[in-house]
Design a protein around this nucleic acid. Structure first.
Lengths: 342, 342
DNA sequence: GTCTACGATGTAAACGTTTCCAAAAGAATA
DNA sequence: TATTCTTTTGGAAACGTTTACATCGTAGAC
């Protein structure tokens, strides 16, 4: 059961067993073999709690997401898990459900489990929770909403580039009335995306009309409602961009409900490129944000702190960038002449 | 940082601090208050590794899934997490990616972390891994593929009931040629579903034709391919049931590609009722398998073992049941007369 | 042949808790 | 007043590791 029994069976001390497991080069080959044999025979597995208690390293990374049920996240979790395992870490996932007390409970659990780093891939976090992590010197990486600091990293999505590609795509097709459906504006992250969209649309002189932007809630139903409102205006947009793919899918439904067709009557562009985007009808043109890349950057950022920490010189947090790119599918096309809102 | 500092600040022994945290009734109210104040001021969080090392209870439950990216799982994970947290446990999720060496690594990690129970919600597990868990007296619950044993529980999905409902629904609509697209037959779980479908179809005298059943792989593309094959036969089915929703969605695409329409030319029924089923075009009629219920049953089964274990009388494993039910949406309708395969 | 250095091993002290046991101090009983 | 029982507290041993330090050969250098 414990290292002691392995030691007894291999006729060595527990120290030698430990060394065989962690630092085989420091023990005689013959002895090591004997130990390994004993380990095998007893089916001994080291107790990681004891291990990390004494070594101070839990080898766990925390991942905080808002809602695993949101199709954006599973791929992120998967990437995170794959890479973490590869690097010898485990992950502990927590969903906040957008509720701040769940977020607090989640952080508390991570701290108690002595995670060596936390990736917060959801909307902002209360300052006192951040302090909690910082005072414990736990490296943290945020998505979009973090301000770089000691132990605090941030991954900044370069919205402008992706959105510009999309707008250009629409302009080339001949669109001039381009609408936008945002996420819920209570969320800082939704505001960031909204600001990026509007900034780009106004810069190209496209968006003059207040009527062309609506608020959704990052769900299909929200997108449907928002788009319905947009379509009710006297002069509806000929193309609409959405803050995420679910919203875009909802928007497409709204178009269809009105008896119009995508992309014939309205072009639709999403954001994220969730797996399903490829499989809706018509396949959704969208701005792809690679979850794999997000996961890679996040873990890289965390590890950057962890190893040097052992060497007593922990670097300052850093800013990382991820650039989304347009994926053209079939939900966009040249606009059709319309006389009126029929 | 540690309990010792709290003790010093509250001018008590560490034993008293521990008692205040775990068993407040055994310590004087005034003292307890003093301790709580110190805990608060120092922002002390107990170290769960030390805690579980000595108490022998990790308060972690393991959840093994095949692929978090498969839309069936996120809801399961969510339910599992919610309920576990509620009961004072954490969860540790592992994806196997259908690869047995990943499964082994996953189990190993769970064992090393001393999880108090494991839910294996994926296809079968090698016997030696099961033995690993059993000899360590770690309660386990399987989905469909487990054989009840000491410490081993199983949740049996009552496929017959759900499938019967679906077949009856199709019969009532007037269908007589009903096809079926299975999952990958290398997976035991896919075989179980397939057997249940075929058994039901042959019982009602519906399925005589080998040509009406095809093998998919539980993905959209697999469903598309399989359905395409089915549609190529001289006398294609007027309705098709699929082993899961992704397959059904793929099947619908195949129908559309052929220039036919769902449900006008072919009715389609899925299985699982993933969240997206409601949002495809047309909304998918499917046999709903509640992930929430699965999670509840799984945790219930595990907890059943864990608490009594402390009281030295651990019950034998048990069999639990979950009954899926038909959800009628718009992918099914009465068959249209057809002369030929056009 | 002695000295030094090094490689292989063991001993024991941590790590931060929980919990058993004993002690102390009243309170209740005889 | 002496005894017993509570209630509250502290001391110390465990839990299963890692790791600094000590020990002991043995080989190479002189």
């Amino acid at each position: 059961m414990s290292i002691r029994e392995v030691a007894r069976r291999a006729k060595v001390s527990i120290a030698t067993v430990s060394r065989t497991l962690n630092n085989p080069s420091t023990v005689d080959f013959q002895t090591a073999e004997r130990v390994r044999k004993a380990v095998e025979e007893l089916r001994y597995f080291p107790n990681s709690q004891a291990r990390s208690l004494v070594s101070g390293r839990s080898r766990i990374l925390g991942l905080v997401v808002s809602d695993i049920t949101n199709p954006f996240f599973p791929e992120l979790v998967k990437g995170f898990e794959d890479i973490a395992i590869e690097r010898g870490y485990e992950i502990m996932v927590g969903s906040t459900g957008y509720r701040s007390e769940r977020m607090a409970a989640c952080v508390r659990r991570l701290v108690e489990r002595k995670v060596e780093g936390v990736a917060v891939m959801t909307s902002e976090m209360d300052q006192h929770l951040i302090d909690l992590l910082v005072t414990r010197k736990i490296p943290t990486v945020f998505l979009d909403v973090g301000s770089v600091h000691q132990f605090i990293n941030n991954i900044q999505v370069d919205y402008a580039t992706g959105i510009n590609q999309a707008v250009e795509h629409l302009l080339n097709l001949g669109h001039t009335r381009i609408g936008f459906i945002s996420g819920p504006l209570v969320l800082k992250s939704a505001n960031i995306r909204r600001a990026a969209f509007l900034e780009c649309l106004t810069r190209t002189g496209i968006l003059e009309d207040e009527e062309l932007v609506a608020e959704g809630d990052h769900t299909i139903d929200g997108g449907l409602e928002a788009m319905t409102r947009l379509l009710e205006s006297k002069n509806p947009p000929t193309a609409v961009m959405a803050s995420n793919d679910l919203t875009a899918i909802g928007a497409m439904r709204a178009v269809r409900r009105k008896g119009w067709m995508v992309p014939r009557d309205v072009s639709v562009i999403g954001f994220d490129d969730i797996h399903f985007a490829e499989f809706v009808e018509p396949p959704l043109t969208t701005i792809a944000l690679s979850r794999r890349e997000l996961a890679e950057k996040a873990i890289h950022a965390l590890l950057q702190h962890i190893d040097p920490l052992r060497r007593k010189k922990s670097p300052h947090g850093a800013e990382y960038g991820v650039t989304p790119t347009l994926v053209v599918r079939q939900s966009t096309a040249a606009p059709r002449k319309r006389r009126h809102a029929e």
